[in-house]
Amino acid sequence: MKKGMIQATDAFERITHWLLAISCLVLCITGLGMMFHSFNFVGTMMGGLKSLKYVHNFTALIFIVALYMAVRMWWKEAGVFVLPEDLDWIKAAGGYLWHVDKVPEVGKYNPGQKAFFLVVALCGSLMVVTGLIMWAPLIFPVWLVRWMYPLHALGFVAIFSFFFVHLYLGTIGSPGSAPAMFSGWVTRAWLLKQHPKWLKEMEEHGTLVVYGEEKESIEHGH
């Protein structure tokens, strides 16, 4: 760890993130195994499609817990858009799609990340509700159950798409991001580029934790 690195996330955030991410990934893969016959081989790897069904269903329970934790933790920071700055950022597309001289400054989470959070939170909830009904379809009216399957699949498409974008932007699409979710420490330069406003806020509030320096505060803001 280099001196001067800044702590972006704490352990709880990272555990929650990975619980959610891994359970979501497992659900996506096992779900694919049931969605397309050509992916049935995923089931074979798990000892048959029936085991895959159980893996999917019980992973969903972990996902529900993780989703609950994530929403509770992040909904204030990532669940609410702040105007007008978020709008400005959106107008500039965060500088991702075309050259922008000066990307409008946003806080800890930019609107893109917020959108991703909202998609995960809403579609995740949709997946939970539709999934649970699909798990016990016999106690619900058939017209309701029938619609659960396409909704579940639609939710999957949305989550999968955002998941991939998230993966891309968290890794090669935005170098320097990944460490935030592994070690929790990021460079000042990355912060300055991605979240200049948050950096400023942390500096102002004195909540900035810099590696090698005396800790001023370890309280983080949720």
Binding site: K2, W98, G176
Partner: peptide
Amino acid sequence: VLAGSFLHYIIHGPKTPDDIQENKTQGGE
């Protein structure tokens, strides 16, 4: 989404922090 991400990477390129561009040794990949 897959294609878009790929195209984004090869056309627009990643959004890299400034000091990484200056000093390739920095950044904890």
